[in-house]
Design a binder for these strands. Structure first.
Lengths: 248, 248
DNA sequence: TAAGGGAACTTGTACAAACAAGCGAGCACC
DNA sequence: GGTGCTCGCTTGTTTGTACAAGTTCCCTTA
């Protein structure tokens, strides 16, 4: 069962992407849209809220809504799962486990993932035949066994875990910065040591807020960028200062 | 006039930040909250939607809402304006124009900002007394005169433009990746040439969708990271592949 | 001609009601 | 003991109404 407001949002999004509603043009008023779709104004408001959250529409009290852009921001899965993102965009991709071992959790890892053993996996992922991303992932003890059953060349760990134990990665926190490539990074990604890498550190949890994994992902320069659309309304990205006193 | 749902959201946020509602605990049901605040259920839903958008709450049909985290995601202004972000977080900060000149827009700039002349400004910003961010900003012709009137050591360009011509930066698109420091970057930021820099390219528009500026901002390594909280619901950040065939 | 004052329009906020759909706990049954 | 089912609770969706607040544009007035 698809919600009505989703259908309306899809329809309007199509008009924007196709150019029928060009960038800079005004959207019809809520009252007009309600009549067109034979829906209540509240339902139309939910639909346009979806598009505003995607960064496609601007909104301010008293004035007509305006089309801001045509690029569609895909959902959470794209940010979280390399495979789902690559597939949605039609790229050829692959993955290969380099090393995998169990060990006891460090203090920092215990704080993030809970106490006990953890499973550390080093995974290299490729896009269009080229190595692009090096993932250093630490899994909590309660998923370690399921992760170990996954074949080394599995394309999508997210999907494998869903199929095997019904695990859903529901929430995540991501920290993005730049680091220079270490010896191992350089060798596996095929770049020179010291090359700039885009780093995404993340902690992912289930629906219940139970931590699943903590990961340090490093992208080869030029291969991938992150894109954010935002408006004066709420948006989830913030800057954070590093420790400026800890020396360079 | 502050909206009721904002007050309720503030109240609940305080309970979360203070620890009265610890991470992992369940929020009261919508019905209970509606009774507590003497508000309609719809109003309560708006309040919790705010907190969910900030990444503080998780939500799924049928189950109680769960507290996911305590860190507050600040708003758009923080991502857009260095000064507002730094001030909100209590940092000492400054800024200095290095060079500033008018020139004709390149083809790419015309496409982004509209045709005609542009104003190119190179600005160095500091945090806690250390150079941290190098901004290469290109302003559209219609704001160039106002930008030129701003003193070279102005702390907040955003605020200066609001005060002088009532300009509001309302929407933005941001691309984040890593690059290595060039000669000029290295000299001004006080790092070695080739150091990894976190780059944020952005295009900002007014309420009406009119482009104001296009900027290439480079952060010194270790000084600043970006943080995103997301959930399975809509979130505005996506990965984008670079051109993988254009050689390294 | 320029400034000011509406009036119509548009989005934002709030309330109330009803049904749909998913979750979880407890119960009965095998 | 464990499996499956039902029932109550909780969140999700939709409609309708009313008023508040901000924008836009036109028309009056100085």
């Amino acid at each position: 069962m698809v919600a009505r407001y989703e259908l309306i949002a899809d329809d309007l999004r199509n008009e924007i992407v196709s150019g029928a509603l060009p960038v800079g043009s005004q959207l019809p008023s809520e009252a007009e849209l309600a009549e067109r779709y034979r829906a209540a104004r509240g339902t139309v408001r939910q639909a346009v809220a979806v598009l505003a959250a995607e960064g496609l529409l601007g909104s301010r009290q008293g004035a007509r809504r305006i089309v801001l852009g045509r690029a569609r921001s895909q959902s959470f899965a794209e940010l979280h799962s390399f495979a789902q993102w690559a597939r949605a965009n039609g790229y050829r991709f692959g993955g290969q486990v380099i090393t995998q071992r169990r060990r006891t959790a460090s203090a920092a890892e215990s704080a993030r993932l809970g106490p006990g053993e953890v499973l550390e996996v080093l995974r290299l992922r490729s896009l269009e035949g080229e190595p692009v991303l090096l993932e250093r992932t630490v899994y909590a003890e309660w998923v370690a066994a399921a992760v170990e059953r996954i074949p080394a060349d599995c394309e999508s760990v997210t999907e494998a875990l869903y199929d095997s134990i019904g695990l859903v990665f529901a929430y995540g926190e991501h920290l993005i910065d730049a680091v220079s490539a270490g010896a191992e990074d350089a060798r596996l990604l095929g770049v020179r040591r010291g090359s700039p890498l885009l780093r995404q550190r993340r902690v992912t949890t289930t629906h219940e807020g139970r931590p699943v994994e903590s990961s340090d992902d490093r992208y080869r320069p030029g291969s991938v960028t992150f894109s954010i659309r935002n408006s004066i309304g709420a948006n989830p990205l913030v800057r954070q200062a590093g420790d400026l006193r800890s020396g360079r």
